[in-house]
């Protein structure tokens, strides 16, 4: 069957649509404004200088502290632009410890915009390894959460052991953290700002 002019236009439009879809798959997330940020396990910050952190050969971190005073947590601060939606945080680790598990809290910490006030912590989601699964991955999904970066800070806290308690050493490692957020206005963003 010969293709007339409207038919050719339809074909051209379908072809263009195909390119767009292929492009969207090749750059997953870009079309819909999704941002991914990955952090090495060892990029976490100890919340206490008494915490002795080790580093494995895969950019992971582990707690070397024995039963002594101090917290047993590392913190991964997130840079989330204002009005972005926090979709999820995926964590990867290794748990070969029969005594300890690696637990996570996704935390929002808010203070008044321009006046004194202590930080108010809200735990948005939690996850933990259990048993001795070896390599593990967990997903933390908060309830609908639009970032207000003018007043709040967001971070993930990973705990190797209860405070003042012995850690499991190399058997319990935090390897990787990935934050997934969404720009709600991917086309116009900030009024055509770059």
């Amino acid at each position: 069957m010969r293709c007339n002019e409207p038919c050719k236009m339809t074909k051209a439009l379908l072809l263009a649509a195909g390119f767009v879809l292929a492009s969207a798959q090749a750059n997953a997330g870009v079309l819909y404004g999704t941002d991914y940020d990955s952090y090495n396990g060892r990029s976490g910050r100890p919340s206490d200088s008494l915490l002795s952190l080790g580093r494995d050969g895969n950019f992971g971190s582990y707690c070397q502290s024995g039963a002594s005073s101090g917290r047993r947590t590392v913190v991964y601060p997130f840079d989330i632009p204002d009005q972005f939606e926090v979709f999820s945080v995926r964590v990867w680790g290794i748990d070969d410890s029969a005594s300890n598990n690696l637990s996570y809290e996704l935390v929002k910490s808010c203070q008044p915009f321009l006046s004194g006030g202590g930080p108010v912590r809200t735990v948005l989601a939690t996850a933990a390894s259990s048993g001795t699964p070896g390599n593990f991955s967990q997903l933390l999904i908060p309830a609908e959460q639009v970032a207000t970066s003018s007043t709040c800070a967001y971070f993930l806290e990973a705990r190797f052991a209860p405070d003042n308690s012995a850690c499991a050493g190399f058997d319990l490692r935090s390897v990787r953290v990935r934050l997934l957020s969404n720009n709600p206005d991917v086309i116009f963003r900030n009024g055509f700002a770059p």
Partner: peptide, 23 residues
């Protein structure tokens, strides 16, 4: 805005002793 929580601050030297609950 861009924010750095207290826990994200690193000591000038390794002798900086710190503690607290994040942030």
């Amino acid at each position: 805005w861009q924010t750095r929580i207290g826990t994200a601050f690193q000591g000038r030297t390794g002798a900086f002793n710190f503690g607290g609950q994040a942030p």
